[in-house]
Simulated assay, not measured.
Amino acid sequence: MRVTTKLTVCFGGLLLAAGAGAGIASAEPDVEAIVNSPCNYSQVVAALKAQDPAAASQLLGNPIANGYLQQLVAAPPDGRRGLIAQLQKYPQLAAYTGTINATAATCSQY
């Protein structure tokens, strides 16, 4: 998998579980929190920077991953569900569960 694809998948995964208590590794994670998240792009980025500066740097330095983030955050609930369904096909996202949960827990505070 190309690096840009990995970053896109990684960050999409971060957003996928924002607000979800369940990790990506579970069979059916609760995605309603991200689907209905009130967090905007700036809040998600600020939370990610606080939780994992290295991941934030990679994301912000990658136009594809950053664009995916903006698309996901800007999408209405049904659009988010579709984007999330695409991301759930990548088991390698399980490695980012800690960062995902930390970002989810704090994005509304930014």
Rank of each mutant, 00 (worst) to 15 (best):
G23K: 13
G67K: 06
Y110S: 03
V3L: 09
P38R: 14
Y41N: 06
R2H: 12
L7F: 06
T5H: 06
Q58N: 12
A20W: 01
Q70C: 06
K89R: 15
L7M: 05
D30G: 07
Y68W: 12
V45F: 10
A22W: 13
L48T: 13
A20G: 14
D52Q: 09
V35L: 06
L60D: 01
T8I: 03
L16Y: 12
I84P: 00
A102W: 00
C107Q: 06
N40I: 06
T97H: 10
Q70A: 07
T5W: 02
L16A: 12
R81V: 13
A18N: 08
P53M: 08
P29S: 02
G23P: 11
F11E: 13
G13I: 01
S26F: 15
R80V: 05
L7I: 04
S26W: 15
L87T: 05
Q43D: 06
A46L: 09
T103F: 00
L93P: 03
A105S: 14
T5I: 14
G21L: 11
E28D: 13
A27G: 12
Q70P: 03
M1G: 15
A54K: 01
Q51E: 11
A55Q: 10
A20K: 01
Y41M: 08
G61S: 07
I24D: 09
A54D: 14
N66K: 11
L72A: 11
L60S: 10
I84G: 01
Q92F: 12
G98F: 03
G12K: 02
A95Q: 10
A20S: 13
G12P: 01
S26Q: 13
V9D: 05
L83C: 02
L14N: 04
S26D: 15
G98Q: 14
L69K: 10
V35C: 07
A47C: 02
E28C: 12
G23Q: 11
D30Q: 09
N36Y: 15
A54S: 12
N66M: 12
P91C: 00
A55W: 08
V31L: 13
A47W: 00
A102C: 11
P63V: 13
Y68P: 04
L15S: 12
L87A: 06
L15T: 10
